[in-house]
């Protein structure tokens, strides 16, 4: 048990150090650019651009931290919130890995499997983008070809179709209400689309946990 604690504690300690270091480096990047090219940002446009972007992104960002931490595990969280693409890549990758290894996200085995899967996914993504950047000139016509465009645009439906089969078939009773609620919301509320799905994820999670709790208490699960 003591060793158990020490692994988790070290994950948190190093996660904090790496995370904050990278945050500082990223924030320093525009400053250093200003110094190198001896220029200042256009403050009027900056405030206008921030006003249009920041409130929504910060709201989503804060909500995402609280929603995804329990699913990603500690190591997975520290990596994912640096490397990004959580809902469309890292989390499905980790969920699939934990499912196949038959471990729970809240156990230490789940923590380790999730961390391995997300670390590998981050490394592979980074390497693919590096290769792509080096070969950008020959690759551009392929990546921008109108034939392939729909395939890349439809990555989320293709991804969640597969994941849904696994999880809905495993939790048939529990999935009825959440799936119904989400279908109704997305079909009948026009404001809900690709841009706002991030805000709805925590709603879906909270609702499903609530339904699960009630069904569990009533002995239905």
């Amino acid at each position: 048990m003591k060793k158990n604690l020490s692994y988790m504690d070290s994950v948190h300690r190093y996660g904090k150090i790496w995370g904050l270091t990278i945050a500082v480096i990223l924030l320093a990047f525009p400053l250093v650019l200003s110094i190198i090219f001896s220029c200042t940002p256009d403050y009027k446009a900056l405030s206008k651009g921030l006003f249009a972007t920041l409130p929504m992104y910060w709201a989503v960002g804060i909500v995402e931290v609280f929603t995804y931490v329990p699913m990603l595990g500690a190591g997975g969280t520290y990596l994912s919130f640096v490397t990004g693409n959580i809902s469309n890549l890292k989390l499905p990758c980790a969920i699939d890995a934990m499912e196949r290894a038959n471990v729970k996200a809240s156990s230490e085995e789940g923590e380790v499997i999730s961390t391995i899967s997300i670390a590998i996914s981050s490394i592979v993504t980074t390497i693919i983008i590096i290769i792509g950047v080096i070969l950008i000139i020959p690759l551009t016509p392929i990546l921008e070809s109108p034939v392939l465009e729909p395939a890349f645009a439809m990555i989320l439906p293709a991804l969640f179709g597969g994941l849904a089969v696994v999880f809905i078939s495993k939790n048939l009773k529990l999935s009825v209400l959440p799936v119904l609620l989400m279908l109704i919301l997305f079909i009948f509320v026009p404001a809900l689309n690709a841009g706002t799905v991030g805000i709805i994820v925590p709603v879906g999670v909270l609702f499903t946990v609530l339904v699960a709790r009630i069904m569990y208490k009533k002995g239905m699960l």
Binding site: A164, K170, V179, N193, V197, I200
Partner: peptide, 15 residues
């Protein structure tokens, strides 16, 4: 399971 299912159902709705 409920957490994962909640997230998946949100993306199903989005589709």
């Amino acid at each position: 399971n409920a957490m994962f299912l909640g997230m998946i159902s949100a993306f199903l709705g989005y589709v």
